[in-house]
Design a binder for these strands. Structure first.
Lengths: 335, 335
DNA sequence: ATGAAAGCGCTAACAA
DNA sequence: TTGTTAGCGCTTTCAT
């Protein structure tokens, strides 16, 4: 690989001048500039990011830790982050944690080693711990989804409680009273908040979100955030509560799983049983019947997250903003 | 951030000794080792990857360029790559190109700048050009999906022609004779190979895969690789050819789109119209009716790709292996 | 407007 | 067995 020295030599100039041309800093005569540019082209020169980072103490990379690219929710978020990052000249380093705390720790170590200029932690379990580690290492952090105790770190969340309550209101307005719930994974706060809203609306304020399994009388089944488990959970739910008129999926994947089960059983939706989801992933609008759901502006959340982080990098003083997005009801045909 | 100097100071040793401990190279007394380890822990020290890369001329990163994480096919592939990379201590840098040549060029520049130790190019349009650029820059390359002319670069492909032929044989054996095809994007060779198999099997050997649009008499419609377009294409197809008994989707997303359209129209699958796909993404097994499709071992392809690349990095001399995976028919209920 | 030189944090070669 | 030192490729003073 050609180095800046090779370029300087070929251009018949010093490395300082070459550097100035490449970075647009300082004075350079037009002639020198042209000679440098020609040499760069001839040698197919690309500056070495490592060497540059060592000097400037900036890598121009952003680290993103997220649970699982396999869940269609996250790629959209990533797109938002990447698009905004690119606009500002940053490269994104993606790390999947698979919801495993051990992987989350590993991810943070990698980000530190790579000295990313900033990090976005999406739905991480160990948010408090990881945030502290990064801040201690002087790395700006933005949290998406799951928040942290510290008030000085920017966070982007969705008003899950409000969204789920709106969903409940909609079901109620459609006449549903016996509503079942497909619950999310234990580690996900978003899932708990939605469950809380469900419980409250149903008049079960006394039940704690972590304790629902101790209340077998409640029409709730564990679906995690997956299609497959949503499907199984629906089957269990209907076995125990055949008189439900509506099912509220903690997210679209679970609700889509429900839809699949119902189709397989030839149970008509929404006539015999209505279904509502949460997220509004692309697939939701495409299945049959199209899924009524609470839309989350995922792409925009990604953009906002990257923007917040980059601001933070440029100005460490700005305070820990919190952005809360409201989900909006998208009425389609499943409920 | 603490540097190796801080660690040395705290341990009361020289930086050389610290480096030796950290890298497990050379002789170090047990006592010194312990002192270093303690200091590392106390200072929460993490070695700087940039500085190390500058010295060792290896970044321990792999670059992966792929079209679109939003398509469920790719995240599985990424998982395979990441898992294998991690086993060998490599970090993966992911770049999405959105099928855009311009983005592909940008991606290669980024990979060069970051001096990744190797690159995996997945279904890139400019495979020949990009491969040449990287090889010229002395960066080992592995291609997945779309191949290149050069014989010296390892490639991983799927035998699309054979797979599609098998699919056709299956449809034929089920009694189908009037079979429609949902075609893929023009830039994807995989899509063309499947189309070629379809045309050949149907006895239209004379039609060129790039020219099918000039033959309005053929029951083919453009679906790209997407659910949405698959849906639209199915509608168009059935309007023109109401007597089709079977539809062959160029990939699962297109076939899934077809299934959604048919469900919306209350056309029963597979009785009135059978559907078959290609890829076997997770969703295929979960919808109703479960999709009959040609399974691709995507995860394993990712693993194999990473493995090939890492071998290549360690031993630049090994020749350009080609791995061809055979898709296998998974009979479910849609055909 | 340009060149020379110091130094970013690390590894590796050499000396002790 | 350990410490010292010379760079890796780059940016950034400081002279000129």
């Amino acid at each position: 690989m050609a180095t800046i020295k090779d370029v300087a030599q070929r251009a018949g100039l010093g490395v300082g001048t070459v550097s100035r041309v490449l970075n647009g800093s300082g004075y350079v005569s037009d002639e020198a500039r042209q000679r440098v540019l020609d040499a760069v082209r001839d040698l197919n020169y690309v500056p070495n990011a490592q060497a540059r980072a060592l000097m400037t103490r900036r890598t121009m990379t952003l680290g993103v830790a997220l649970p699982d690219l396999t869940n269609p929710y996250f790629p959209r978020l990533v797109r938002g982050i990447e698009d905004e990052a690119q606009r500002h000249g940053y490269t994104v380093i993606l790390l999947e944690t698979d919801w495993q705390p051990a992987n989350e720790r590993r991810a943070i170590d990698i980000l530190r080693r790579q000295s990313v200029d900033g990090a976005i932690l999406v739905d991480v379990t160990l948010s408090d711990l990881l945030t502290n580690i990064l801040i201690a290492a002087n790395t700006p952090v933005v949290l998406i989804g799951r928040g942290a105790e510290r008030q000085d770190v920017p966070q982007i969340t969705v008003n899950n409680y409000k969204g789920a309550t709106e969903a409940m209101q909609w079901m109620f307005s459609k006449g549903h009273r016996r509503i079942g719930f497909l619950a999310g994974p234990e580690h996900a706060v978003s899932a708990k908040q939605r469950l809380r809203a469900y419980l409250d609306f149903m008049g079960w304020e006394a039940v704690l979100v972590d304790d629902w399994e101790k209340h077998p009388e409640l029409p709730i089944a564990q679906a995690d955030y997956s299609f497959e488990r949503g499907r199984e959970a629906t089957e269990q739910l209907l076995q125990k509560y055949p008189d439900l008129t509506c099912i509220f999926g903690v997210n679209d994947m679970a609700a889509l799983g429900a839809l699949a089960y119902l189709a397989a059983q030839s149970i008509s939706v929404p006539d015999t049983l209505a279904v509502i989801g949460f997220d509004d992933v692309l697939m939701a609008s495409l299945v049959h019947p199209p899924l009524t759901t609470m839309h989350q502006p995922v792409y925009d959340m990604g953009v906002a997250g990257a923007r917040l982080l980059i601001e933070r990098i440029k100005n460490a003083e700005c305070e820990g903003q919190r952005l809360v997005f409201d989900p909006v009801l998208v009425v389609r045909q499943s409920c």
